[in-house]
């Protein structure tokens, strides 16, 4: 086990050094979008509104924290790995080292996890200042961590499967961007037709939003959504491990 954890550290070391070199730039780019959503939707469109019995600002902050975990974790991992694999080919060097495929998957996802945790924590901390309805709980921390792993694994998968830099952009436009707006981040899914709800429940960000909201607002916790989020994380991890093990990268 210690050997496995060391391998994860060895794999992630370079990415974390990269983050250290570019900390301010990476952090500001991660939180700029979520801050704009907070200003536009929380204070602009949603001023004075309530949603599901709480002020709208308290409703959307867990949603924005969820989408921050998606955007920061996915984009950090996917963009860097995509460049390392297709442009610099430095990912080949890693593949030639005596490392387990599982350690490579975890290690390559760590940059996204760290960046996602820091960025979503900043957004949530702002929320704690803005509204007394929110509270940080152990369950919230667990869910945001699982959420960051889920979307970071998704980023690894997207980068491993991408045939070009353009196909990464296409993936972001067709999968990530719609999730950002539709998965219960800015509004309750109960407002939507049931057929649309069914589709949205098949996306991981929906479960991330629902669980983070329940954990931070003290609502009944939707354990089934947590299980669904974990299932997505495990599925993405297994896909990545298979791609690396069978050298389909």
């Amino acid at each position: 086990m210690i050997g496995f954890l060391k391998e994860i550290y060895y794999v992630s070391w370079a990415d974390l050094r990269f983050m250290r070199h570019n900390f301010v730039e990476l952090l500001s780019s991660s939180i700029m979008g979520p801050l704009l959503y907070l200003l536009a939707f929380g204070f602009g469109l949603g001023a004075g509104m309530t949603q599901e019995g709480v002020p709208y600002i308290a409703f959307i902050i867990p949603g924005i924290a969820a989408l921050t975990s998606l955007s920061a974790s996915f984009s950090s991992t996917a963009a860097r790995l995509n460049v390392q694999r297709l442009y610099y080919r430095s990912f080949d060097e890693m593949m030639m080292c005596p490392l387990s495929p599982s350690a490579i998957v975890f290690g390559k996802s760590m940059l996204g996890v760290v960046r996602g945790m820091i960025s979503s924590s900043i957004i949530f901390a702002i929320g704690l200042v803005l509204t007394p309805e929110l509270s940080i709980t152990p369950l919230y921390v667990i869910v945001i961590l699982i959420s960051c792993f889920t979307f970071s694994f998704l980023g690894v998968a997207a980068a491993l499967l991408a045939k070009s830099h353009a196909s990464m952009a296409t993936f972001s436009s067709l999968i990530v961007l719609p999730m950002t707006f539709l998965c219960g981040t800015f509004f309750s899914l109960s407002n939507l037709p049931s057929a649309v709800q069914t589709v949205l429940y098949a996306l991981p960000l929906t479960h991330s939003s629902i669980t983070l909201r329940a954990a931070s607002l003290g609502w009944d916790f939707p354990w089934i959504s947590l299980a669904a989020l974990m299932a997505f994380a495990i599925a993405f991890f297994l896909i990545n491990r298979h791609l690396i093990r069978t050298k389909k990268v």
């Binding site: 060895y10 070199h21 610099y88 430095s90 060097e93």
Partner: peptide, 22 residues
């Protein structure tokens, strides 16, 4: 193709290789 991590220093690249080879 030179397959080094261009966002890191020469020393950091070497250190990373040394780590990955345990």
């Amino acid at each position: 193709h030179i397959s080094l991590d261009t966002d890191l220093t020469v020393r950091e690249n070497m250190m990373h290789h040394a780590m990955m080879h345990k």
